[in-house]
Design a protein around this nucleic acid. Structure first.
Lengths: 145, 145
DNA sequence: TGCAATTATATTGTGTGCAATATAATTGTG
DNA sequence: CACAATTATATTGCACACAATATAATTGCA
C-alpha cells in the first residue's frame, strides 16, 4: 500500500514515462527525417497524403488529432518547401484541399524504409509491440467518446 | 508477409499512438492543473522539488529528460509566478539552486490527489499499468546508453 | 428570401522542446 | 600561474501544440 507521498513521486508515475517515451521516439526518427528535411509531424501529414492522395485540412486534423492552430501553419511551411499544394475547393470555398506535389510524392520512396529502421531501433518483441499498440489505442478510444 | 505499403501503416500504429497518447494524457491533466495555474511540465518540475526540497538546474534537466533551452525559461516563468526561487550557489557561481517558495510548497497539498484522479480517468488495469511502465522504462534505458 | 446558426480554416498568444551557440565560472595542465 | 579545456546555465531561432478568437463561406429556417 503506497502512501500519498509515494504516489506523488516521479518514479511511480505512469504518465511521465509515456510523455518521455513519446519525445524519445520522435528523437529516434530525427536522423532519418533530417535526411528528408521534414519534422515528425510533417512526416505524419505526408503519411496521410501518401495513403489518401489528397485530403482536406479538417481530415488531416482529425486523423492526426491536431487542430488548425497547429496544422494550418505547418501546411504553409510544407507548401513553402513545395511538398504539398493548397487549393480552395470550387464548390465550397471554405474547404482547402491538400495535394502532394511531385516532390512530395517522390519523398515516399525515400521514406519507405524508415518504419523498418525505427522498429529495429526501438527493439521490442512482437508481444510488446502488440500489447503497446492495444493499450494506447484503448485509452485513445475511451477518451474520444 | 506484409507489404511495405502495409508496414508503413503498421508502424503508424506503434509510434503514432504513443505520440498521440502522450498528448492525450497531458490534456487529461489539464483541468486539474488549470486549477493550480500550472502546465504539465511545470507540474513535473514541482514533483522533483516536492521530493528533493531543492535541486540544481542540471538535476532537473536530467530527471525530466529536458535541456536548458526548455528548462531555463520555464523556471523563470515559475519564478515570476513565485512558485520557486533561483539562487546562484556561493561556492560555485555557475550552479543555480532551485528552491520552493511557500506558495510552491503549499501547492503540494492541492496536487496530492491528482495522480489518483488521473488513474481513474485513464482506467487501465493493474497489469496494463505495470506493463506500460516496464515497457516505457525499458526503451528509455536502452536509448540512454 | 433574409439572416442567424453552422462550418472550415486562419490567426493570435503563450508555452514548450530542441539544436546550436554564447557566456561566465571553474578546473586542469604545462 | 597563465590559459586552454571543461562545466553549468543562458540565449537564439525555429517548429510544434493548443486555447481562444476571428473570418469567410454555406446552410437552415422563420
Amino acid at each position: 500500500m503506497k502512501s500519498k507521498e509515494e504516489i506523488l513521486k516521479l518514479e511511480h508515475q505512469v504518465c511521465f514515462p509515456i510523455y518521455t517515451l513519446s519525445k524519445e521516439i520522435v528523437s529516434m526518427y530525427r536522423p532519418y527525417l533530417d535526411e528528408l528535411d521534414i519534422s515528425y509531424p510533417q512526416y505524419l501529414v505526408l503519411m496521410v497524403l501518401w495513403e489518401e492522395q489528397q485530403a482536406t485540412v479538417s481530415m488531416i486534423c482529425e486523423k492526426l488529432y491536431l487542430d488548425t492552430g497547429t496544422i494550418t501553419p505547418m501546411l504553409k511551411r510544407m507548401e513553402a518547401k513545395e511538398l504539398i499544394a493548397r487549393t480552395r475547393q470550387k464548390n465550397d470555398e471554405r474547404v482547402v484541399q491538400i495535394t502532394l506535389t511531385q516532390k512530395g510524392k517522390d519523398l515516399k520512396k525515400k521514406a519507405i524504409n524508415i518504419p523498418y529502421k525505427l522498429l529495429e531501433d526501438i527493439d521490442l518483441t512482437q508481444e510488446e509491440l502488440v500489447f503497446l499498440r492495444s493499450i494506447t489505442t484503448k485509452i485513445l478510444k475511451k477518451s474520444n467518446k
